[in-house]
Each structure stands twice: as C-alpha cells, then as structure tokens.
Amino acid sequence: MDAFVLQILNGLDKGGAYALIALGLTLVFGTLGVVNFAHGALFMLGAFCAVTLQKLLSLEKVTEDPTQLTAWGTPMEIRTPYIETWLGDLGTTLIDYSVPVSILLAIPVMLVVGVVMERGLIKHFYKRPHAEQILVTFGLAIVLQEVVKSFFGANPIPQPAPEIVAGSADIGLLLGMDPGTVVYPWWRMVYLLFSAVVIGLVFAFLQFTTFGMVVRAGMADRETVGLLGIDIDRRFTIVFGLAAVVAGMAGVMYTPILSPDYHMGMDFLVLSFVVVVVGGMGSLGGAVAAGFLLGILQSFASMNEVKTILPGIDQIIIYLVAVAILLIRPRGLMGRRGVMES
C-alpha cells in the first residue's frame, strides 16, 4: 500500500511536467495546426530564466576582513551579494526564493519569445506540409539549445528550492501509516499544485473568457470565424505566446527537481509528443490526462518488483503505450473524431 501511494505521488510530479508541456504543444497544434518541435526548447528556455535570475541575484561583492584570517594566514574574504547590501533581509529572502520569483521574469520573456517566434517563423509555415514544419522547428530547437549552451556551458546547473520547502514531507503519517514509509519532497508537492493551478487557469481562460471562446471557435472552424470579421490570426499569435509561457513556467518550476542543462528540452520534447499523441492531437483534456497517466505508469514501471519480472520496462513503457494507442485508437484517448486519424 505504502509503495503504491509513493509511486503514484512520484508519477504525479513528472506527469505534471509532461502535462504542462503537452498542453502547450497540443494547443498550438489545435489552433495553428503546426507541429512544433521547438516546444521542448521553450521549456528549456524557461528553466534558464530561473538560472539567469539566480545568477543575477547572487552577484557578490568581495570584501576583505583583516581581523579574521583564513587557515593560510590571508585575510578572510567576505562575500556579500549586492542585493543583500541594498535590500537587507528582503534581499536574502529574494535569493532564497529565486526559483519561484523567476516566474515573474519568465512570463514576459517567454511571451515575447513566443510571439516573436510565431510572427517571425511559424507564421510562414501554416500552409507548408507537416514534414517541413517539423524540420524547421527542429532546426530552431537546435539553434536555441546551442545558444544556451554557449552562454551557460554544457553542465547542469543545480537550482535550490526555497529553504522552507527544501525538506521532505511524511505523507504516510497523514494517511495513518507508519512514519517514514511514504516520504515525499515538499517541492514536488508544490510542483504538483502549481501544475494543477496552471492547467486550471488555462482551461478557465479558454472556457470562461470571450477571448477563449473566440479561440475555441477558431479551433473548430477557422475560416468561419475569420469570415465573421474577427482577426483570428492575432488571437492565435497570442495563443502561441500563451503556450510558450506555460512551457516556460513549467521549466522554471522544474529546475529544483532536475538541474537544467541545455538539452533538457529535447529529452522532454520526445516524451511530450508521445503524450500529445496518446491524449489525442489537439485535445487539451487528453493532453493533461495522458500526461499524468504516463507519468504514473512510468513510475510504476520503475519499481524494482516490476523490473525483476520485465527487465527494462521502465525505459520503454511510455513508447510501448504510445505504439499501442496509435495502433488501436489512432485519434488518441480523447481526440476528436476525424482529426488526424489517418
């Protein structure tokens, strides 16, 4: 029982990341009809927003304190981040909370990146075949990740979670089990909550605002909406920006779980595509459901008990599920009938 709960929890936070990336991917496909292989790179860019902010905040002033000596007899160097000298305690708090604070940086940055990307490149590929869309965005993804690599180096850069949530929670205790059986890092819980909120916000935005209504109408029948005198292209540009923001925020919050490096986007992209396909191309609910489902499946497959029966299953389970879904039900779990069913 306790192992069971633990695996579900483990799967949920990974599933949250998959769901957030897949949500943007499928949103872009549903609205613009574009297969965006650079979406993983947006996730990676978000993560590096967090890295940048953390680096900026911890720029330090080095002063020497002659009253204290190090073991080598030289004056002790005292490093104080500039922000602490300027803002005092608030500065210290800011540094501690650099990851969540980065979201404030990531939102405008990713919005601009998304809009520029759509206006500058993707726009010209609406009418082109999917193969060319895949190829050009694949090229863009390589460019983005190489640029990041040249700025930040090839090694992963660990990002600390705020101290208050750095530890682990004893979930088992809450559920009336023995202490220490189900231990779960607080930050993953935060991530889970965060992804649930973001997913809820995106759905609410599409469901309850006029803007969202127009976008949904455009997804269903772009031409008619255009004929009604609505500038659907502009809305879709904003939708692309929104998808970029969602991917970016997912990246920011994931940094304490996985130290960001330049190719994390590619690693997630392949999986997210599989998630989108399993959920159904263009289906938002499907992407979210499939994201969590595959995350949980993967964490169950990596249990030792399972691995002894089926060695290596943890490596391929997601792909196996995708193959099975594509063969049995090609429109995905919740895909609309007739959308990309060939």
Binding site: V35, H130, A131, I134, V270, F273, V274, V277, M281, Q315, I316, Y319, L320, A322, V323, L326, L327, P330, M340, S342
Partner: peptide, 17 residues
C-alpha cells in the same frame, strides 16, 4: 499502419526504445 506525423512519431518511439 499510420502515415503523416503519426508515422514519424511511431518510428521515433521505436528508435528511442
């Protein structure tokens, strides 16, 4: 059994496996 982007993703899935 599938074509278009689904074919691409199926082959990608097998290669990753």
């Amino acid at each position: 059994r599938r074509s278009g982007i689904y074919f691409s993703i199926l082959t990608l899935a097998f290669a990753q496996m």
